[in-house]
């Protein structure tokens, strides 16, 4: 069963066409990696999936759990179980992490018709995840990503992934800017998330992360279309040979 189904997707940003007929199916229980050179459209794919304003779908369809997603608001996508781990998580001074995470958890719970967690339960579960991700629980009192290092921001994204427990996790270059230890921590988080009921779309430049999070399928995105798909070994080949041979 496919959680995500993308058909003939054409997307432009600021009048410039970036995705030019992308097709992709991600089935439940799988991890798909998207690799590709700079400017190939990887982040555009992540942003258009999350519904970022300014990303215009000119043609094609995105289906999420069978529902057409093209014109759905970002918050509705999130409530349906789509999660984007940002490449550059923004800093929001004055809004504490605690306030932000509770608001997110509550809005998802409300959409799913579930009960809101109590403050105590909530803090317990956040602290547990934070400790596993090597984030000092004191961070809850600070503003969202305020004064966070690049590594802390990425770990905060993974914390949200584990807390919100979506159906589909789109990770946009979550490995960029991480040192070796942080990469291992982040990879552990992703592995902890993945199970038979969800799926992961892992966007990355490098094969390194894929040593820790082993994908089921690797796709190569080039000039707005997927030019090759294969098993995990494809990532190793790309690391050795680069991308040029695929488009020559």
């Amino acid at each position: 069963m496919n959680i995500l189904e993308i058909k003939d997707l054409h997307v432009s940003v600021g009048g410039e066409q970036i995705l030019k007929g992308l097709n992709l199916s991600v089935e439940q229980g799988s991890v798909h990696a998207i690799m590709g050179p700079n400017g190939s459209g990887k982040s555009t794919l992540a942003n258009v999936l999350a519904g970022k304003p300014g990303y215009v779908i000119d043609r094609g369809e995105i289906h999420f759990d069978g529902d057409l997603l093209n014109d759905v608001d970002p918050e509705v996508r999130a409530r349906a179980g789509l999660f984007l781990a940002f490449q550059y998580p923004v800093e929001i001074p004055g809004v504490s992490n605690m306030e932000f995470l509770k608001a997110a958890v509550d809005s998802l719970a409300a959409a799913r018709g579930g009960e809101q967690t109590t403050a105590v339960e909530f803090v317990k579960s956040v602290r547990k995840i934070a400790t596993a991700l090597d984030l000092n629980p004191e961070f809850l009192k600070r503003g969202v990503n305020e004064g966070f290092s690049g590594g802390e921001r990425k770990r905060n994204e993974i914390l949200q992934l584990l807390l919100l427990n979506p159906r589909l996790a789109v990770l946009d270059e979550t490995d960029s800017g991480l040192d070796i230890d942080a990469m291992q921590t982040v990879a552990d988080g992703i592995n902890r998330f993945r199970d038979a009921h969800n799926c992961v779309l892992l966007i990355t430049h490098y094969q390194r992360l894929l040593n820790h999070v082993v994908p089921d399928v690797v796709h190569v995105l080039s000039d707005g279309v997927i030019v090759k798909s294969g098993e995990k070994d494809l990532a190793v080949t790309l690391e050795e040979r680069g991308y040029a041979w695929l488009t020559d």
């Binding site: 608001d73 918050e75 999130a78 998580p89 929001i92 809004v95 608001a103 997110a104 809005s107 949200q160």
Partner: peptide
């Protein structure tokens, strides 16, 4: 957008940012 991507409505996101 960051707040909306976590499930907050546009109005709630605005209010949260204005409050801050």
């Amino acid at each position: 957008f960051y707040l909306r991507s976590r499930g907050l409505s546009r109005d709630d996101a605005r209010t949260l940012l204005c409050r801050a």
